[in-house]
Each structure stands twice: as C-alpha cells, then as structure tokens.
Design a protein around this nucleic acid. Structure first.
Lengths: 142, 142
DNA sequence: CCCCTTTTCTGGAATGATTCCAGTAACGTG
DNA sequence: CACGTTACTGGAATCATTCCAGAAAAGGGG
C-alpha cells in the first residue's frame, strides 16, 4: 500500500538512515524513549525488557550511547540525577529541572532567541555548544 | 594594629559572618578552594590533609556542603565530571567546560547581559535560577 | 574558666549510576 | 549462504558521594 502521508519515520528507517544496524534492542529503545517525556536508562531498561524479555543492562547503555552519538537521541544530565534521554534533537531547546524531585520540562528558548550563546571571553576554548538549565520547583513539589 | 585597608576577609571572619562555627577543616577548605581555579572534592581533600594531617573524606564533603549552603562557595557539576567548587559567588557568571579533559573556565556573560534567563514557557515550574554551560575544547586539548 | 548541648569529624561500609571485560550471538554485505 | 564486523550477555569493577554510629571539638551560659 502506498500512502502519501508523511508518516512519522519508523524506528527501523531512522536507524538505517543514520547508518546503524537494525537490532531489536535499538528499535525497542527508540520506541521506549519516544513514549515517555524524558526517560532514564532504567526506564528504558524496563520498557525494553517488557517488550523483548531478557535484555542486559549493558545492552541498553550501549544502545543509548550509539543512538545519542548518531544524533537520534539527546542526552540530558542534570546535576545530581541520573541521565535522561529524549527524541527532540537538533532544535536548541533547553530544560527546567525540579530541584526537589528531578522532574524535567522542555523549554523553547524563544525569548530574545539566541541567548548569550557566544561567551564574552572564551578563555581560549573552542566553544561548540551552549546549554541552559533552569532550576526550580515543579507544580507537584511546591 | 588598626589597618585602614579593606583586607580580603579572613576565612575565620567569613565563617563567623555566615553564622558557621570556625573549625580547622573549614578554614583550610576555604583557603584550598581559593588557591585553585575550580577545585574538586579530591583536590580539597589533598590540600587540607597536607595542611592539617589526617582529615576524613566525610569531613571534606560535610564542609563543602556547609560552605555551599552558606553561600561561601559555589558548586559546579559538569555532566560526566566530579563536582567542582569555587569562591566566586553571587555574580551570575557561567562556565566553559572542555569535553575532553574537563577543564573549566569562567565566563562573564556580558553579551546582551541577562540572557533568556526567563523561559518562554515554564511548564508551571517556579524557576529560581538559570545556569549556562558552554561545551567545547580547551586550548590544551585541541 | 569549666560544663553542657549542639555541631562536627572519624572510619568504615554502602549506594547507585555507569563502565570494563571476555565470550557468544546477530546483522547484512558479497 | 558464509564470513567479518558489530552488538549483546553476564558478572565484576569503578568512582563520586552518602549513610551510619560513635568520638571529639565548638562556644554560650553559669
């Protein structure tokens, strides 16, 4: 059947498009991250195991790294909390992190667009990316 | 002797001023952090032990927390690297982190001053602080 | 100046996320 | 369909940081 609708790219195609081998663990991981807001490695492990049965911890970390390196996932590492992964990549958006429970929200940085993404003095560093993290309390914790 | 010069506040006075008890570990820690750019807990442990002899790991972490809570130190926690401490507090400055060796540099965010420190959509969160981290390569690593 | 309550420090074990390692299994090109 | 490369398994190890219970200081009151 030839649909003309621009169906949301299937995990398999995303993987092939990124030059990665298609494996059950990768497909399941991609789906698991997509079904959740900001998944931790543990969340993914749970979802993937529910779908495929036995999957090693290492496999999930390997997959998460491979997908992140390939640009299919973005890793967020809030201080004091385990890393989280999301599928929104490429758009320079930021995050609000609850300092109490660690909940995370997306923030489109539209206010004045490009913020101070260019440091006033780069100390000789070659700056590649700027990352903004907002800290506060989520609706549930306050 | 009554000097009129505004001497840089002595560690002891800083501690008392913050309502903290003055202990050898705290004075030594304050000095250790001041003598280094961005000290890790381990750096501090080394300096403090060199100065005082035996000091427990826990003591250093306790001190570092107490001083950070009191506002005498600022903690920086770059993803993938151990936490670092600095004495420049109160001025909303940011950091450049080398993605290779973890080296850190200070960045005064003067470009357009207050960046997008106010998220366009706070997701219902009560935002308290905004933190900007620049990632790149330090002069030595590139 | 000494006592007493509170806070801090000691030492050792525990935690939790993530990684290392060596061997086995699966992918997909030819 | 065979083979070389890449991925996955299972278990142990790492590293920063924290937990715990008891011993030792800090400093205000008497």
């Amino acid at each position: 059947m030839t649909s003309t609708a621009p169906a949301p790219a299937a995990p398999e195609d995303l993987l092939r498009g990124a030059g990665l081998r298609v494996t059950a663990a990768r497909v399941a991981t991609l789906r698991a991250v997509g079904e959740r807001q900001h998944a931790t490695a543990d969340d993914v492990l749970g979802s993937v195991r529910a779908e495929l049965g036995t999957v090693s911890v290492q496999a999930v970390y390997d997959v998460l790294h491979a997908l992140t390196d390939a640009g299919l996932l973005r890793r967020i590492e809030p201080a004091g909390h385990p890393a989280r992964y999301e599928r929104r990549t490429g758009d320079n958006h930021h995050h609000v992190v609850c300092r109490s429970c660690g909940a995370i929200g997306d923030v489109d940085c539209t206010v004045g667009h490009a913020p101070c993404l260019t440091p006033s003095d780069d100390n000789g560093f070659v700056v590649e990316t700027a990352e903004v993290t907002y800290w506060g309390l989520c609706p549930h914790c306050r």
